[in-house]
Nucleic acid binder design. Structure first.
Lengths: 190, 190, 190, 190
DNA sequence: GATGAATGAGCCTTCATTCAT
DNA sequence: GATGAATGAAGGCTCATTCAT
């Protein structure tokens, strides 16, 4: 049996991301993606079941990378404030270095395709973070509110600010990044 | 000469919002929208130049309503904390009562169509809010950071939480709402 | 009863001719013609039964004018050669002064709409010419061949030469015109 | 990989010609042509960039065949009169045997699509004929007038006569054909 | 595995025409 | 008489997907 060509698959993923970012989700047809990737439309169907599978898979891959980046070197033994600050800085750094991936993710997450994603799988990376937060609540270090509130203040500001569509003029300087995270900490700390 | 039927235009807008929310942005074809609205596809082109115009116009209308709702009864003479709290509560109330509009707006704002919107026009409603915040910075009541940071902590958590796609389980109870806004205030206050 | 507006009808005819000449027969829709004429599409249906009627009527009008022009001052008492020469010069002059009409006519005559035209009506103007030719055959001045052959040599060269689509570089100078007709005479004379 | 089906392309061309001849240029939609050819509308776009390309390509093919037929066995060493007579007979024969092609060509040449054709390419076949005529002018055998005049008398009568739309009753009998060409010769000879 | 050919369904838009004023 | 609103049908074309090689 011949082996799937890793380069070809990567070319398809890159083409998908680039094209969706450039001309948008709805206009990105399979044949345009194929052309951009330098393969035949039929080839895409060797790697993915259909268009939906291609898009969802690409999204899941990105989301996983993003989760891993955010949690890189996560140290539960640090003071919570510092541990969280690290995740924010990590997130900003990753987004800055991989803006294409982030941009795609935002567009996808707000499209109906998002409903097809297995949330649990995508959120697995954050479990250690959950634990730390849970403990911090018990220790009366952070506010005792539903987790969604904590998360919404921790990361939604970052997502919004890093999105050039929403904030075309925002610059993710180290100062700005630390300021955002510091404000987030003020929001959630007791 | 026949006169333009106001009901017809409203039916088209409603159909657009309902359909986009139901089956998504990319799948909502002009003829499906027409069918849902109970008019001929051709009729849509009497009211809108093309599909893009229909979608963008609908978005701008919604965005304007949202801005107006958020700023309703805005009272610059109140303590900032209270004035801001009011905007948050207004926003939540409006979203709760008009989830369809909000849902459409979120999907639109993260699609490439968003680039076609005249931002200045849409942001006009918020000018009084800008002024109050600016003064509060001078009065050393809130932090002296770029405005985008302030806004990102004030409203992005709400947008995220209110989005059933992102937080299907969140309930906008008065307690939760006040908690979110209170956290936002902690984030931005000096 | 209100009276039909002569100016309006003329505007419609002019618009039809101009538009058909510019963008072609198939692309000239009723609403485009209406816009060019400065009237409502519905107005056209007051003057003409439908699109076909508009086009055919316009053609018949033009064709009649052309026949009249060609036969203007036709003098059966002149020597045939001179009488024919006059028709050719007349034709050239008319075409030069009314190229728009001629251009429309050529396009129409080679379209399937042509089949809808009542030929007899259009050819009525030429009857005196037929008579003269018939007599000339009897007098053994011109060749005894089917009339179509005579006509084909008398006027098709002119039609072809005067058509900028077929002969973009031809100039209808008096010299050229006389040369063409002189050649035509050589073709048909005995 | 599947290979392009030559039969399919030929079916498309034949369908185009047949349909255009039957219902006319403007009414011949791509999907009607596809149906007539027994293929999917989308298939046509594999062979041609768009409708315009389909029509123009078909025309150029026909025009080339016609030029080749007219010039078949062209013998520059014959007396001009005979050489020209041969071209006329060739032309008539070809038209008689391929009236469909001729009919299409006439309709096309008088439509605005004609402007899209590369004239030089289409006229290449006639170069030997040009040479002979040029020499005959020098030899004072034919009249010294612009070439367009010569051509207009040589072939436009044929085109007109062979066109059933213009001359529904004309029969291209050998006698008639020789008569037309003989008249043409009288027109151009010195 | 990889491909370009092939397709029916559907896209957005405009059509010729009629309606209500 | 004159009009812009309204429409079902059809326009050219592209879609996601499968086929044959």
């Amino acid at each position: 049996m011949r082996v799937k060509d890793e380069n070809k698959q990567q070319a398809i993923i890159s083409a998908t991301i680039a094209l969706v970012n450039e001309i948008g989700f709805a206009s990105s047809s399979v044949s345009k993606i194929a052309k951009q990737a330098g393969v035949s439309p039929a080839t895409i169907y060797i790697y993915y079941k259909n268009k939906e599978d291609l898009l969802v898979s690409t999204y899941v891959t990105i989301k996983t990378c993003l989760g891993d980046a955010l949690m890189a070197d996560f140290d539960a033994s640090l003071p919570v404030e510092d541990a969280l600050m690290n995740t924010g800085v990590n997130l900003f750094n990753y987004i800055s270095a991989n803006s294409e991936l982030f941009y795609f993710k935002e567009q996808f997450a707000n499209s109906p395709y998002n409903d097809l994603v297995d949330k649990a799988k995508v959120e697995a990376a954050f479990l250690p973070l959950f634990d730390v937060l849970q403990q911090s609540v018990k220790d009366k270090i952070i506010k005792d509110v539903p987790f969604e509130l904590i998360f919404s203040h921790l990361y939604y500001p970052i997502f919004g600010l890093a999105n050039p569509r929403l904030n075309p003029d925002f610059k993710a300087t180290p100062d700005n990044v630390r300021a955002v995270m510091s404000m987030a900490w003020d929001a959630i700390k007791l």
